[in-house]
Nucleic acid binder design. Structure first.
Lengths: 316, 316
DNA sequence: CAGAGCGTCGCTCATATGAGCGACGTCTCC
DNA sequence: GGAGACGTCGCTCATATGAGCGACGCTCTG
């Protein structure tokens, strides 16, 4: 009580005690001796100091990580890992680069020599791979076929091969497109020894990285390369997000689609079996898709930027 | 070690732990349980957090008191009380008002019903008196005669009478000028019952307030009202400061002067006998005088403003 | 592959700290 | 002036915390 009617002498004394305790790291007993008071008095002065705002404690990271948003995101969705970087929200390519580098740092940190890494295709995953340091002999498994993007950078195959080359581990990869004209062809392709061998590795994958798309024009490479029929059908099925090829509704439940049967990629069940799946979304408009992905339970980690993180948390 | 090569996951975890500990006030044991780690790990994370600057603790007062300067001044000169207020250093009258109000608050805080208050004459003391709240029946003793200042505000008599009126305590005051033409007249005046009675109260004074002047033109009301001979003589004697009429050299030693014998005011010995003497200097140029006053051992408290405090501390 | 060097972890045990309490002094209102 | 309300102080005792240490695992090197 008595908020501001403490006298100046009291204020100066309290500040001195607080300095000794918080900045000089003395114990309360030492301070009590120095100032000739009981340790209880010191404790009460320190309580006062915090209550009245004389001592202010703030937690922030000197670098680009927004620790507060990161922790809130992690706690809000019960994630293992959340990393939110605070970068100016300019163009998509710049965001992708920043998010990719942050994801590379996270992956380098959490990966162990026992891990098997799975990589789904997404532009941010490709950006991450480029920034990835040498991993400790980690085997790398390709999780999805190559999307035909003429102007695109690396294909999923390139990414997997390059990461495995630098890690010195085995590369489980295959040459096949992500989407096929019909389910029969897709089934046939999955029988191919190369493809089958890569998919046999799926149960051993312990950590994986994937992208998140919003099922709208310009918000998902899969949407942008899909047919009008597919676009419409999935929209009618309530698809909100695609997690590197796994479709989920706004509430996070996976949505079975005919399109999925025509794809060479891991399915929802296989994705769920991966102990640690990190997604790397970017672009503020994707907030609904990210919410859906995080609600799905498929995802255990996220690396993204602050405006998107804020948009995700700002739901009503 | 490893300053910045901690991974993002580590940073976010450390920040979360630090938040729980410093902001939410959880114990380390609780945090350890919550995060599934040992309390030792929590302690190490918290040490890291402080070392790397993730947690920043700052101590500052939301009001006008500069707690850091105050404490430094107090510690540097071994004072009982030091209050430094941070106000724009504009004109003397404004400074005097601010310092006076701060001194009033300090006095109101430290005075007890058992105290006897002594007031020497100085413009800042007058300003303080005007801001003083009702004191608990405190007797007030006049410590120096009235300086003839036609345009001046209150005289020493007015100040003492007014403070005593509001405290409800006895007023020990007398009507006499501060300086007289010769020592004999001064001696005679001191014999006057009224004056003698007031000075008899001196040993009972437990707390007193005085001003500090620098022995230069415009830096001491005493200097400004003194004769040219007195000005020169005291300068030649090495007088640096006057503490409401008590002259001290730059190193703080009291300087006996012929002028003092012509004054109706307490002398150095009587001043030294006062357990708690607070001075209220203002004006950055007075720094040497303030240093001298604080070194003298006569003074146990100070109330001043930040630019002067800084100048005082910035000695080589 | 042995072994030194290094870092991390969680233990023991002494110490620091917090919660709660009764004693005391002060203030207020009859 | 007396009774109660209130605030402050420093105690006890249970708990939290820190210093120091040995065990373990990883890495590098011969």
């Amino acid at each position: 009580m008595a908020d501001q009617d403490r006298g100046p002498a009291q204020i100066v004394l309290t500040a001195s005690v607080a300095r000794r305790y918080y900045l000089d790291g003395r114990s309360k007993v030492e301070i009590a001796e120095e100032f000739g008071m009981s340790r209880f008095k010191v404790a009460r002065l320190l309580d006062d100091a915090r209550e009245t705002g004389l001592v202010r404690i703030e937690i922030r990271h000197p670098g680009e990580i927004d620790v507060d948003l990161s922790a809130r995101l992690r706690d809000r969705y019960g994630l293992q890992h959340a990393v939110v970087i605070d970068v100016p929200d300019d163009d998509a390519a710049s965001l992708r680069g920043h998010v990719g580098r942050a994801a590379a740092r996270l992956l380098a940190e959490i990966i162990t020599p026992q891990d098997v890494l799975g990589l789904a295709w997404a532009r941010a995953v490709s950006a991450m791979a480029r920034a990835l340091p040498a991993l400790p002999g980690t085997p790398v498994v390709q999780l999805s076929g190559a999307l035909s993007m003429p102007e695109g950078p690396d294909t999923s195959v390139d990414v997997v091969r390059e990461v495995a080359r630098r890690s010195g581990g085995a590369a489980h990869l295959f040459y096949a497109p992500l989407t096929l004209p019909d389910a029969a062809t897709a089934r046939a392709l999955r029988q191919q020894p190369e493809v089958a061998r890569a998919f046999d590795q799926l149960p051993s994958v312990t950590k994986a990285v994937a992208g998140v798309g919003l099922w709208e024009a310009g918000q998902s490479t899969l949407y942008d390369t899909a047919t009008d029929d597919d676009r419409r059908e999935l929209r009618e099925l309530g698809v909100c997000a695609d997690i590197s090829g796994v479709f989920v509704a706004g509430d996070g439940t996976p949505v079975p689609t005919e399109l999925a049967e025509r794809m060479i990629a891991l399915n929802a069940a296989q994705m769920r079996a991966i102990p640690e799946l990190v997604v790397v979304p970017y672009g503020t408009r994707k907030a609904p898709a990210v919410r859906a992905a995080l609600r799905s339970g498929l995802v255990s980690g996220i690396v993204t930027h602050s405006t998107l993180a804020r948009a995700v948390l700002d739901e009503l």
